[in-house]
């Protein structure tokens, strides 16, 4: 890049660390993250950057691409990860400004974790809805390590079964969210015959979701082999564009989400999907999607975590759509 055009960041003044991996450098000031690579530099508002970084870290680089915006992101190759700048935007590619560098996953994850910890100020929770947290801006003050290191709740069989992921309650630090105060919290009545008390299991799934403390961050509530029910509560905007490398499914459980769909390779807009309670929709394996939820809503994300799909991705045989008709 033309070094004359590089932004000036006075790290000593703002108090944040600069992070470098390979030929990619990350800096922050009071308002922006700066991603600098041999082909250029890109700025992202720091609140948006930290919300996206939080998801990339929490989801272990996720399935496929985590696009922080149309220019910068990561692509997971399961064991190693690309950092890219511009390579999924047609105009950047056309101009020859696109840049990709590959890293071992554990190395990049360690750097991202350190950056998230250092750049997140006291009072800002990157997982929270904007109305439920403080500001990300300003000079370095404190940290929120306890919030950014939350453990994802992952059931092995089903939430609430003794020894499996626990139910949420006031006592365990999960009050009902302000937007779900009207969601019934009554648990199902279970009448087990003598000798079968440990075999019948049920819980209030919607009540459990109403107690989610985070947004755009699925947990796992029920599992059949590699079929994972991953519900989440959504409010405002998904902080990333998720670029699929396989099909995933959305089931809208309550309220409404509008998804902007883009081409996974070029960022060109492709479609808008409006989902309301009861709607079921596949995200094809070659698109990027970003959701907008005007009111906190309940979304079931349904994932297939089968290693067979990893093989199909490597072979280029993974289907882009789940069924044809």
């Amino acid at each position: 890049m033309n070094q004359q055009l590089k932004c000036t960041v006075d790290s000593a003044a703002v108090g944040y660390q600069t992070f470098t991996i390979g030929q990619v450098k990350f800096e922050r000031c009071e308002y922006f993250a700066y991603i600098n690579c041999p082909k250029g530099e890109h700025l992202i508002p720091i609140d948006a950057f930290l919300r996206a970084l939080m998801r990339d870290v929490a989801w272990g680089f996720f399935y496929g691409t985590v696009a922080f915006d149309d220019v910068f992101g990561t692509t997971n190759h399961y064991g190693n990860v690309d950092i890219y700048l511009g390579s999924k935007h047609s105009e950047w590619v056309k101009a020859g400004r696109d840049y990709v560098e590959n890293f071992k996953s554990d190395l990049l994850m360690a750097l991202f974790r350190a950056m998230l910890s250092d750049w997140t100020n006291a009072g800002f929770d990157p997982f929270a809805a904007p109305q439920e947290t403080g500001t990300a801006f300003g000079r370095k003050h404190g940290n929120e390590d306890s919030l950014i290191n939350r453990k994802r709740e992952v059931a092995r069989r089903m939430v609430g079964i003794p020894g499996d992921a626990a139910l949420r309650s006031d006592d365990t630090g999960f009050p009902v969210n302000r937007a779900f105060l009207d969601v019934d919290q009554q648990q199902p009545v279970i009448q087990a015959e003598p000798g079968f008390e440990g075999e019948l299991h049920a819980y209030n799934f919607f009540g459990y979701l109403a107690r989610s403390a985070v947004t755009w961050n699925p947990s796992v509530v029920s599992v059949i082999r590699q079929s994972l029910f991953c519900p989440t509560t959504e409010e405002f905007i998904l902080p990333i564009d998720h670029g699929n490398d396989r099909v995933e499914w959305f089931i809208q459980l309550s309220d409404e989400i509008v998804w902007d769909i883009k081409d996974g390779a070029t960022s060109a807009p492709k479609a808008k999907v409006t989902m309301r309670a009861g709607d079921v929709c596949a995200m094809p394996g070659d698109i990027r999607h970003k959701g907008q939820s005007p009111k906190r809503s309940m979304l079931l994300v349904w994932e297939n975590a089968s290693p067979q799909i990893m093989d199909m991705i490597r072979d280029g045989t993974v289907p882009m759509v789940p069924v044809t008709f």
Binding site: I251, Q252, E256, I261, D263, A268, P269, K270, A271, K272, V273, T274, M275, R276, A277, G278, D279, V280, C281, A282, M283, P284, I287, M320, V321, P322, V323, T324, F325
Partner: peptide
């Protein structure tokens, strides 16, 4: 009592989204 959403395409085939409503 349900109100179904839908897919509006700019440059895609709505069938790829396999869109339905479970109440319907």
């Amino acid at each position: 009592d349900y109100r179904k959403g839908g897919v509006e395409c700019l440059n895609d085939d709505p069938k790829r989204y396999v869109y339905s409503n479970m109440f319907e």
